[in-house]
């Protein structure tokens, strides 16, 4: 992990505080989230307190502070999906997984992220799990979709 942050920092030899966001983006691209260790390291290099970096990072929706789940669920909250009830889809998902958007379940299986339009308005409301689209999702079908991934997980375990 340390090496990842180090190697990213090497790409910004004269980095000042104006490089903070690109650096955080690179770290998130590599590691899927911003860990405490990463933020502290960046802070040491840029001479910025951790509180300040956490403050900047939480200002933007794009940053996560927990590792991605094995199955990463993106919930579209674009206009078309919104009109067709994506807010209740998100609510149901958060209820069933007992996490909020931006978080990861304790078993590390699922994580949820809210995204703006993912360009599949004809399928609204839509969610994407690991990039795989699920169309016309309802509060009832959420459970089935989750079940599907959980079953895959169990089968995978059997084969091993």
């Amino acid at each position: 992990m340390e090496n990842t942050v180090e190697s990213i920092m090497e790409r910004y030899p004269k980095a000042g505080r104006d490089s903070l966001i690109p650096i955080l983006q690179d770290i998130q691209n590599k590691q899927g989230y911003l860990s405490e260790e990463a933020i502290v390291k960046v802070g040491q290099r840029l001479k910025l307190p951790a509180s300040k970096i956490f403050g900047v990072a939480t200002f933007y929706n794009q940053f996560r502070f927990e590792p991605l789940g094995k199955h990463h669920i993106q919930v579209c909250r674009g206009t078309a999906c919104h009109v067709l009830g994506s807010s209740s889809v998100l609510e149901e998902l958060e209820k069933q997984l007992k996490i909020k958007s931006g978080q990861t379940t304790r078993d590390g299986l699922f994580s949820v992220e809210v995204v703006a339009c993912i360009g599949a308005c004809g399928l609204a409301p839509v969610i994407a799990v690991n990039g795989e689209f699920h169309a016309r999702v309802t509060t009832d079908s959420i459970g089935e979709i989750l079940e599907e991934y959980k079953e895959k997980e169990l089968e995978g375990a059997k084969h091993e």
Binding site: P49, S51, K52, F54, G55, T58, F59
Partner: peptide
Amino acid sequence: GVSAIDYINR
């Protein structure tokens, strides 16, 4: 010169 706290979220 401590910065233990800052604004979080938006």
